[in-house]
C-alpha cells in the first residue's frame, strides 16, 4: 500500500477514486475520502451499501479494483470488528485475549481495561461476555497498539440504546485522551450522528458528506433513508433533547448543533 508523504499531508489515510468489485458486481464506485488526525468520522448507509467493504478495503483486507488507498507511513491502526464469535471450544479469558497478537504487560492490560470501564474482568472467559462487554474488550485490545486511527465496524450492533450511548461516549473520551482519529460504520441515524464530527453517507458511492447537521438536511441523505421532509433532523434533535432529559452524560462536541 502506498504511503502518504509525511508532513505535507494532514490526513492519516486517504482513498482516491477507489472501486471494489466482487466478480462483475461493483460494490463501491469512485470513493474518495480522507481522514484527518483526531477527527471522528462516521460512515452511514443502509444494509448492502458497501460500508463494511469500504472499511475492509481501507484496512487492506480487500483488494481494490481501481484507484488507490494511501496511508501515512507507519500509521498505527486499531481495528474493532463488527462482532467476534468466540467459539465455545476455545477457552480464553479477557487478559489472554488482550495479548493477541502482541503480548502486553499485566500493567498495560489492567490500565486499558480500566479505560474502557472493564476493571477486574481480566479473568472472565471471552465466551461468557455480554455483547456490550465484548465490544469494550475489543476496543481495549485495539487501544493497546496506541493507534493513531481507530476503525470500528458497527460497534454498537446488538446493544440497547443506553449501551449504545455509553459506547459512543467512551469513543469520544478515548479520542480526547489519546488524540486518535476515529472512523466508524453505522446504520443507525441519530445517536451516532451526535457523536461525529463528520458524516459520510454511502450507498455504493458517496451520496453526501459533511457535519451531521449538514448531512441530515441533505436531500440525498433523506432519500437514502426514506425520510420525509421533516426527516432525520427532527429525529436527531429529538434524540439529542431526549439524552439531556434522561440525564445521560452530556456529550461535548466541537461541531455545531441545532438546539431546538
Amino acid at each position: 500500500m502506498p504511503n502518504l508523504p509525511k508532513g505535507r499531508h494532514m490526513s492519516l489515510i486517504a482513498a482516491e477514486h477507489v472501486c471494489v468489485r466482487y466478480g462483475a458486481n461493483e460494490v463501491l464506485h469512485d470513493i474518495s475520502l480522507q481522514i484527518a488526525a483526531g477527527e471522528i468520522v462516521t460512515i452511514l448507509g443502509p444494509n448492502g451499501s458497501g460500508k463494511s467493504t469500504l472499511l475492509r478495503a481501507l484496512l487492506g483486507i480487500l483488494p481494490v479494483a481501481e484507484g488507490r488507498i494511501l496511508r501515512q507511513a507507519g500509521l498505527r491502526i486499531g481495528y474493532v470488528p463488527q462482532r467476534l464469535m468466540v467459539d465455545k471450544t476455545m477457552p480464553i479469558n479477557v487478559r489472554r485475549f488482550l495479548s493477541l497478537p502482541t503480548r502486553v504487560s499485566d500493567a498495560a492490560a489492567t490500565e486499558v481495561l480500566a479505560r474502557v470501564g472493564m476493571t477486574g474482568l481480566g479473568p472472565q472467559q471471552m465466551a461468557a461476555l455480554s455483547g456490550g462487554q465484548l465490544q469494550r474488550v475489543l476496543l481495549a485490545r485495539a487501544l493497546l497498539g496506541q493507534p493513531q486511527l481507530l476503525m470500528l465496524d458497527e460497534p454498537t450492533q446488538g446493544l440497547d440504546q443506553q449501551g449504545e450511548a455509553g459506547f459512543y461516549h467512551l469513543i469520544e473520551e478515548v479520542r480526547t485522551a489519546t488524540g486518535a482519529a476515529v472512523l466508524m460504520i453505522s446504520h443507525d441515524l441519530h445517536v451516532v450522528m451526535a457523536a461525529s464530527d463528520r458524516v459520510i453517507c454511502l450507498n455504493g458511492h458517496i451520496c453526501c458528506e459533511g457535519t451531521p447537521r449538514v448531512v441530515s438536511t441533505a436531500p440525498e441523505y433523506r432519500a437514502l433513508f426514506g425520510l420525509g421532509s421533516e426527516g432525520a433532523l427532527a429525529l436527531y434533535r429529538h434524540e439529542h433533547d431526549h439524552d439531556h432529559a434522561d440525564g445521560h452524560p452530556h456529550h461535548h462536541h466541537d461541531h455545531e448543533h441545532d438546539h431546538a
Binding site: 484496512l59 487492506g60 483486507i61 470488528p81 497478537p101
Partner: peptide
C-alpha cells in the same frame, strides 16, 4: 491463535 479467532482481526 489470532487468525483462528478472527481472520479480519489478524489481517488488520
Amino acid at each position: 491463535l489470532t487468525s483462528t479467532l478472527s481472520e479480519d482481526l489478524a489481517h488488520a
